[in-house]
Design a protein around this nucleic acid. Structure first.
Lengths: 240, 240
DNA sequence: AAGTGGTCTAGACCACTTG
DNA sequence: AAGTGGTCTAGACCACTTT
């Protein structure tokens, strides 16, 4: 099978929806109509619909039909998705994001990092600190730890562009799930030095562990943002 | 149909998993085995598995089997789920959460709130400010706006307990999706007065719109937390 | 009564992993 | 080769909404 049919259908529907092919007052054609148009079963159309619903593009009302979701009034260009597995370069654009490497070393994990990344104490990790700049302005300090065994041959060239793309496109690994904590914090000396934070400026911190689809943890990281340049956003869906 | 079979199956499996019935090294019995045990088709078992996977309890590897997800090292008791549709009382316990009503009025929405809640300017809204206390200590200031037409007969008694439970259990409305923004901010005079924040303490702010399953927005709210008592947490899953 | 989405089944084939 | 989860179909019945 080349590619799942329900993904093809979802992609086509998504394009039509974002192209405003369908009205927001009228329901979409029903599932059976799309099944006939795309030559698939109704269940396949439903599966595509389910995914688009989880992404917040549509909502369904049993007995009534399926509708395009309205615009989100509080959405703004500075919003950064907190539930997403794309790197910063892919979010903000390759040309506008530049990364300074503040630190790059290999070391043995301390007990806490052994725990965070499910490692033995003789399994080395990368310790990476990057200052990510957007439009020549400092945006985030990112402190990342990754197991060497899962991400071989990491080097400065990759760190200057996108670790995410290296992991996906070169190593063909797939992220499965992530646990993320978002908190506010007082600035430390690095925030003041590299992010130009004032001593009473709040910082927005994201701490996370990311796992692969095979259950192995591949990243522990802490990111610190200026409070006035960034907020984290999530689209949450109340379905099983 | 009383209740969907896949929900029943998922519930039973969830209980077994949290009761540590299954090892973390060995795969679970396969889908066909559960199908026979529960007298359902394999697809129904798969649907239950899919949901549990999205909740982060299990992960599946095609060709290998299904595994119980490991513990989350950075998980802590103060973590508050950012992707959840349960009220504070249900999260922290009914007896420990007390709410002071700082403001409660009905008014016509200004243009911005008309936009946030898809209302005409003659459709009234509730304007509610509550101080939520946990264990007798101030925890959050919550500023909530809701359309009167969707939530009739709101009163102080309900505000002192749980608006969420009123909406679900009495009005039988169901939340569909939410858009949430999390940011850090400097304290304002209310934070200082009610949350005992110092002038250089950072605040953690959550702004959100919640929609019902029929696409109508039912809540716009802004919540402010002390930086040292709370963080928002989300479990994110990289599936369609 | 008619139309919508939700659920469920039995059976089939596929891709992937391990022996 | 055998076993796993992933996908897909055709057909059926259900609950809900509107006419």
């Amino acid at each position: 099978m080349a590619r799942a049919k329900y993904l093809e259908v979802a992609e086509k529907l998504k394009k039509r929806i974002t192209d405003n092919v369908y009205s927001k007052e009228e329901p979409l054609p029903d599932q059976e109509a799309f099944a006939q148009e795309f030559n698939v079963s109704r269940l396949t159309v439903k599966k595509a619909f389910d995914g688009l619903e989880r992404q917040g593009l549509i909502y369904k009302q049993s007995g009534l039909g399926t509708f395009v979701a309205g615009d989100i009034p509080i959405k703004s260009p500075t919003d950064t998705p907190a539930n997403a597995f794309t790197g910063l370069q892919n979010q903000l654009g390759k040309d506008k994001v530049k990364s300074d490497i503040l630190h790059f070393s290999v070391e043995f994990p301390d007990p806490q990092m052994q725990n965070n990344l499910s490692l033995k104490r003789n399994e080395p990790i990368y310790n990476i600190v990057r200052l990510r700049n957007y439009d020549e302005k400092p945006l985030i300090i990112e402190h990342t730890f990754m197991p060497v065994k899962l991400v071989p041959d990491l080097d400065e060239k990759i760190l200057h562009s996108s670790i995410y793309n290296y992991i996906h496109q070169k190593l063909h690994l797939k992220f499965g799930h992530a646990y993320r904590k978002i908190r506010a914090a007082k600035p430390d000396k690095y925030d003041i030095k590299y992010l130009d934070a004032k001593s009473d400026d709040p910082m927005l911190e994201l701490e996370q562990i990311i796992w692969l689809t095979n259950g192995q943890p591949i990243e522990y990281s802490v990111s610190r943002n200026r409070y006035d340049t960034r907020d984290y956003v999530l689209l949450d869906n109340n379905r099983f």
